[in-house]
Each structure stands twice: as structure tokens, then as C-alpha cells.
Design a protein around this nucleic acid. Structure first.
Length: 343
DNA sequence: GCTCCACAGGAAAACAAGGGAA
DNA sequence: TTCCCTTGTTTTCCTGTGGAGC
């Protein structure tokens, strides 16, 4: 059933892109000066989750490296690496310059090392850049002539609103590449490509791919997740082909798996809060703090809990409804409609 | 309109942890 | 071994907002 499991992973970069040629061309053009040994303006990739921003960035940069292997590429996911120190460290790690750097190494030294590594151009791809807590690092990187920035985020307005004036004015110039949600036919084509490479011939029919695409609501990440889950289920059942029943049961799997991955990454106290919100369905802050204090042995202060709750809202795990006294926390609905609104 | 209260979030201080230097 | 430096996390203090009650 499954011929090549790598193809069914979200982070797989295909050898040919489907339905994103304009976006690839625009990004390629913005990076073209690198081939002539010049620097570039920042490139911004905007669009909702699951529209192929990261995939296209990786694909385009792989193409660029084929033309000029001297160009180095570093990917940083700002969900995990959200401080100035972590971003600089990740970039240095990507170019093998992070030796003997530790927690107490001054940030200026990290910046200095990056500055010293200017013998070859470096493209720094900052994914989920709107999650950066210290956007001054963008100013730092922009100052380095050998570093080209590719910044990936959901919405332009929200990203620029989070910048301070200095960063905003520096990064104002640059190429914007806007990604729209995939239509059902486009998503079917992407899934067909993955199925052709990853599954045995005729393992899944076109109308089944259409069912998956419709359930994914334009989100390729979810669509590929459903396909992967369906293929695994069929394999476990010993079937030679994916059945419609298997697809129907795989649809909720994909969204649950994405959420579960985020929940598993929560800190202990965040997890307690998440579980309590899940248990109650909807809860007001005062009651939540009260119950939390009863449940854990060494409770954190309410200020820390507010920080945790803010983080979980950012993670799209919970949402707050109402304001001030009428505020309630609840889990983000796990259906496609909600996903559309949030993206 | 005034006061009280619940709530969110910014700023700065305090603290913990890890590593280097003496 | 101790002190110092740096970072990340947590706490303390504070301000702003707006609903509820009078």
C-alpha cells in the first residue's frame, strides 16, 4: 500500500510544484540578485495555514542552490525559536558555526559570529515569523549584507503591527508573495501527485481524493494528513486499496493529530489549564485560577497563568470569548469552519 | 456619574540555571 | 570552588478597560 512514506509527510518537498508557479517565479525573481553576488531585499510569504508557503520556500531555495551551491540556506521556525538568542543560535547551527556557544554566551557574540561568516551568502528563512517575541533580531539580520531574509507569516497587517518603528521602516521594502487557499481541484491535483509517488498504483481513486480535498477545506497540510492516515488504516486492515469507509474515519484523525502534537508540547502547568478548560467546556478566568490552585501542589501566580493562557490562544488551542467580566475560555472548535475563520 | 471589582497585559525586579574565568 | 555573566522564566507592581451596582 505505502511505497514511500516520506512523500506523505507534511514537510516533504516535491520535485515539481503543483499550482504555485506564479508564487515560485515571484520568489525566484526576488532572490535572483544572489546569483550575481548581490544582496536582496526581504521576501515576504503571506497566507493562511496549509497553503504551501514553507514548501514553496524550500522548493525555490533548493532550485537556487542547484544554480549556485555557494548559497547557504537556514530555516528557523519561530514557534520554537522565538527569542533573539534562539534565532541567532539556530542560524549559526545551520552553518556549523555554533560550536562552544552556550546559554550564557552574549547575544552580541552570536551576532558577531554571523557577521564574520560573510564569505558566502546566507538565506535565512524565518517561518511563523509573527511568533517572534524579539523582532529586533530582524533589524540585526537586515544589517548583515550577506544575509537575505525570507519571512513567512499569515497576515501582513498583523506582522507589521508587531514590529517596532525601526524594524518596520527597514523591512518596508521587499517582495510580497500572497498565497491563497487551494481550491478543491487544486488540492486534488496535489493529493494525486503525492498518492502517485507515495502509494501503490490505483491505491486511491480520484473521487476519494476529492472527498479528502473537500474535508480539508483548502488546507493541504490537513489533506495530506487525511491521505496519510487513510493509507495507514488501510494498510493495517490488510486492504490493497483505500476504501471510502477508511477515509471517513481518517478525516477526524488528521485534525486531531495536528492538535495533539501542539498539546504534547505544552508545559506542565499549561497542560493542567488546558485539561481543565477541556473538562469544563467553557470557564471564566476566576474559577479557572481557583480550581488550578486546588489541583496543583505548587501553583504559579495568576500573572504567569495569564501568560500561559495567552500562549495557548496564540497556539490556537484555546480561545477567549467576551471581554472583561464576561470573559470565558474554551477550546478552539476542531472543525473546518473554525479553521477557516482562524486562518 | 461614581465606586468597586474582575480581568488583561506591560515593565521591571527577582530568581534559577548553565558555563567561563580566576 | 567561588564569583560573575547571561539568558529565560516567574513574580511583583502597576495601569487601563469596562461591566455591575448604587
Amino acid at each position: 500500500m505505502i511505497v514511500d512514506a516520506r512523500v506523505l509527510r507534511e514537510d516533504f518537498v516535491p520535485s515539481e510544484v503543483v499550482h504555485r508557479h506564479d508564487e515560485v517565479n515571484l520568489l525566484s525573481e526576488s532572490l535572483e540578485p544572489l546569483l550575481a553576488g548581490h544582496g536582496t531585499d526581504p521576501a515576504f510569504l503571506f497566507g493562511p495555514t496549509g497553503v504551501g508557503k514553507t514548501c514553496i520556500a524550500r522548493y525555490t531555495l533548493a532550485q537556487l542552490r542547484e544554480q549556485d551551491p555557494d548559497v547557504r540556506v537556514a530555516y528557523v521556525n519561530c514557534w520554537q525559536e522565538y527569542t533573539r538568542f534562539r534565532v541567532l543560535y539556530s542560524l549559526l547551527e545551520s552553518i556549523d558555526q555554533a560550536v562552544s556557544i552556550h546559554r550564557s554566551t552574549p547575544k552580541d557574540e552570536l551576532f558577531g559570529r554571523l557577521d564574520d561568516a560573510g564569505d558566502r551568502p546566507l538565506v535565512a528563512v524565518l517561518d511563523e515569523v509573527d511568533q517572534l517575541e524579539e523582532t529586533a533580531v530582524l533589524y540585526d539580520l537586515h544589517r548583515l549584507p550577506h544575509v537575505s531574509l525570507v519571512l513567512i507569516a499569515n497576515r501582513e497587517e498583523e506582522l507589521f503591527a508587531s514590529f517596532d518603528d525601526r524594524v518596520r521602516s527597514r523591512l518596508h521594502a521587499g517582495t510580497r508573495v500572497q498565497f491563497d487557499r487551494y481550491g478543491t481541484d487544486e488540492l486534488v491535483a496535489i493529493l494525486r501527485e503525492r498518492a502517485t509517488q507515495g502509494l501503490e498504483p490505483n491505491a486511491v481513486r480520484t473521487e476519494q481524493l476529492r472527498t479528502i480535498a473537500e474535508a480539508a477545506s483548502g488546507d493541504a497540510r490537513v489533506g495530506i494528513g487525511i491521505l496519510r492516515s487513510a493509507a495507514r488504516r488501510a494498510k493495517q486492515a490488510g486492504d490493497e486499496r483505500v476504501t471510502t469507509t477508511v477515509i471517513e474515519s481518517a478525516i477526524p484523525d488528521a485534525r486531531t493529530a495536528i492538535r495533539q502534537k501542539t498539546v504534547e508540547g505544552l508545559l506542565e502547568h499549561q497542560r493542567v489549564l488546558y485539561d481543565m478548560i477541556e473538562d469544563t467546556g467553557e470557564i471564566e478566568p476566576g474559577t479557572l485560577y481557583e480550581r488550578y490552585e486546588q489541583r496543583v501542589e505548587e501553583p504559579k501566580t495568576t500573572r504567569t497563568l495569564r501568560n500561559h493562557l495567552t500562549k495557548m490562544v496564540h497556539y490556537d488551542l484555546i480561545e477567549s470569548v467576551g471581554k472583561h467580566r464576561g470573559r470565558r475560555y474554551r477550546l478552539v472548535a476542531d472543525d473546518s469552519d473554525q479553521s477557516d475563520e482562524d486562518s
